[in-house]
Amino acid sequence: MTRTAVTRSSRRRSDEDLRRMAWRVRRHALDMVAKEGFGYLGQALSSAEIAAVLYGDALDPDVDRLVLSPGHYAITHYAACAEIGLLDEAELATYGDDGGRLEAIGTERTPGLAATCGSLGQGLSVAAGIALAQRLQATGRRTYAFLSDGEMEEGQVWEAALFAAHHGLSGLTVVLDRNNSQVDGATESVTTLEPVPDKWRAFGWAVVAVDGHDVAALRAAVEEVRADPRPGIVIASTWTLSGLADVIPDEADGHFLKVSADQVDRARVLLDEAERTAAPVRTVGVKGE
């Protein structure tokens, strides 16, 4: 059954509602990767609360524009879209199927997005262009961009950040998943990124750094940067095993997780119970503050 789409005019979700939504995002993602026993589950575990706040509270899907810069986070996007009625939950079972709409890495065919990007680091440029167009057309629409932290190693991200600040794109809000994970390992082992908040501030952005698994802190941070006349970024510190640390070994490669049938069964029980109780997720702290 498709859920009713949520807009800004709908009843505001409580923090408890958003925590439950985050647990369901994790459960959807687990079911999507369970077919093959591997996939981009870690991205959904780290960004589940971000998705709950962004899709379930901040974004008006009938009005606003959303850019997904890291295409492999499409798994989180699909799960969140099912939660707000933009996808039928039954279609999630086709994730990664040949010829299906829900490709493992998002493409121009991915439903529910203004843009998804191929090579990492391109999404902010696209979002900045859309935000400028919305302002010139006086549409009143906001533009949201979801970025991963490894993308900050790309110069194009910082060129776009300069452009957005120069043009005062107050209608542009970025949420950054700071999970310290990329395909080659921990981001800090590849390229030192810290101090991330200070760098964005130096580029002229409104910046709030929060624990990315705290829905109350996330939604307050989004509201704060949206109220600022500058483009805004919420830097969300997260963990790629968040919510399933009791099932998946700590040494697992969070960028591309492998899960056994036994782990899937145990994880489903854990996630269903956490969703039922709206349990808070183990906090990870805030990087760079």
Rank of each mutant, 00 (worst) to 15 (best):
V234F: 01
T116W: 02
T116F: 04
G85W: 05
A164Y: 05
P195T: 14
T277S: 14
V259H: 00
S181E: 12
R24M: 12
E154H: 08
E224S: 14
H213R: 09
S260A: 10
A221D: 01
R178P: 01
R13A: 15
E153S: 13
D214N: 12
W205V: 12
H167L: 15
A79N: 07
V6R: 13
G204K: 02
L172K: 07
W23I: 07
A5M: 15
W200I: 04
T2S: 12
W205F: 12
D98N: 05
R276L: 04
A186Q: 07
V264W: 05
P70I: 00
Y55V: 08
I233T: 05
L244T: 09
V175F: 08
D88I: 05
D253T: 09
F163H: 13
H77Q: 11
Q134V: 04
N179G: 09
R219A: 07
G99H: 07
E83W: 00
E154R: 12
V53G: 08
G288M: 01
T192C: 12
T76I: 08
G168N: 07
G71S: 14
A165Q: 02
E273H: 04
Y95L: 06
H77P: 03
R26F: 01
A267V: 05
V234H: 02
I105N: 12
E251M: 02
S242I: 00
A82G: 15
T7W: 06
R178H: 09
M152P: 00
A90S: 15
L136C: 01
H72S: 08
D98S: 05
I130Q: 00
Y40A: 10
L66D: 03
I130W: 03
A74F: 02
T240K: 13
P111R: 00
D17S: 10
R142G: 06
L147E: 02
T187V: 14
S14F: 06
A220M: 06
S260N: 10
F146C: 03
E103L: 14
G243Q: 04
Y95K: 03
V225W: 02
D177G: 09
L132S: 04
V208T: 09
H166F: 11
L169Y: 04
S10K: 06
G155D: 10
Q134T: 08
P195R: 11
L113V: 05
D211A: 05
L54K: 07
Q263I: 01
T238H: 02
L68M: 09
L59I: 09
D250K: 10
H72Y: 08
A104M: 11
R219N: 10
L66P: 09
G56T: 05
Y78E: 10
W23S: 04
S46Y: 06
D246I: 10
D177C: 14
L136D: 06
A131M: 08
C117S: 13
T187K: 03
A202N: 06
L193G: 02
L193I: 04
S10G: 13
R20K: 15
D250V: 12
T116Q: 12
T192Q: 12
V259Q: 03
